[in-house]
């Protein structure tokens, strides 16, 4: 996106006046749409639309053996796919850097066991565990990818149902197990601690959340904070700028309050989702 100087000044002033170009205040989010359980072959899925940003997340489960260093932990892996549908810049290997950045940020945010308890994914210590493949597909980019992705991932993990393991038989070196294939014989993951990421963007002298693509272009630097409950699980500066220590601290505080607000809203929204709803598919 190319912006001329006049447009940049306009955005800068709008942030200064606390009345942004789409009428929001500095701490406001754009409207969101969330759907869960929409990809039939996956164990859990969610699609989040944040104004023009569209993210689809699906969770697949497979059986793996834990690493020797951490025999009691299951595994979780994040893959981000920047589809060329989103923007032509992603064509070929264009989106690779962004994809690595987002997936690395997610895996470091979910690494701490206070954020996500991988111990629950262990079936038999040292030999069998669940591995969660979290696939993130960016369908449309309208700014603020980190926030949208983290919300969608949390919703998809909430939606994930892990089949119950009926029995595990250890016979010498061989481990055999039986997993229930009943459709409703499964348990949900505990995602209360799953981190929410918030991008805090510095424009002029002020910090804003949920920047649009145009606002991202005007920012002098931004910081992504992943907040799990009330603690920070990852902080990362993005956008190529630098921040004064005081500004950084202020944006961390802003990020923390906004993330907690988002988190409680998301959990309330998820609670309202009815298991018996009949709507299927997301291109409604």
């Amino acid at each position: 996106m190319a912006l001329c100087e006049a447009e940049k000044t306009f955005i800068l002033h709008s942030v200064e006046e606390n009345f942004r170009i789409d009428g929001r205040q500095r701490g406001d989010y754009r409207p969101m749409e969330l759907e869960t359980n929409i990809v039939a072959p996956s164990f859990g899925s969610a699609r989040l639309r944040l104004a023009n940003t569209d993210v689809l997340v699906s969770v697949k489960l497979e059986i793996d053996s834990p690493t020797l260093e951490q025999p009691k932990l299951g595994k979780i892996e994040f893959f981000v796919d920047c589809s060329a549908n989103a923007t032509p810049d992603f064509e070929g290997r264009g989106g690779d850097n962004l994809a690595t950045e987002i997936s690395n940020c997610l895996s470091s945010a979910y690494k701490s066991s206070t954020a996500f308890d991988a111990g629950k994914l262990c079936i038999l210590k040292g030999s069998k565990c669940w591995k969660l493949y979290v696939d993130i597909l960016l369908l449309e980019c309208g700014g603020n990818l980190y926030d949208a992705v983290s919300l969608a991932v949390k919703a998809a993990l909430w939606d994930t149902r892990i089949p119950l393991v009926k029995s595990v038989v250890v016979d010498g070196n061989k481990v055999d197990m039986e997993v229930s294939d009943e459709l409703f014989d499964c348990e949900r993951l505990d995602v209360t601690g799953a981190p929410i990421m918030v991008t805090v963007c510095k424009i002029g002298d002020q910090c804003i959340v949920d920047p649009t693509t145009a606002e991202e272009h005007c920012s002098g630097g931004s910081v992504v904070v992943a907040v799990s409950k009330s603690n920070f699980s990852t902080i990362l500066q993005t956008g190529g700028g630098s921040l004064h220590p005081m500004t950084l601290l202020e944006s961390l505080k802003l990020g923390q309050t906004v993330a907690q607000r988002l988190d409680s809203t998301l959990i309330n929204t998820l609670k309202q989702i009815n298991d018996n709803s009949t709507d299927v598919g997301f291109l409604k």
């Binding site: 690494k111 990362l236 500066q237 601290l249």
Partner: peptide, 20 residues
């Protein structure tokens, strides 16, 4: 010289007080 933080990277689980 410019009193600017060019990158701040944190992992784990830390509260605001310890970070500041």
């Amino acid at each position: 010289t410019h009193q600017q933080i060019s990158q701040f990277y944190q992992t784990g689980n830390i509260n605001l007080e310890n970070i500041s």
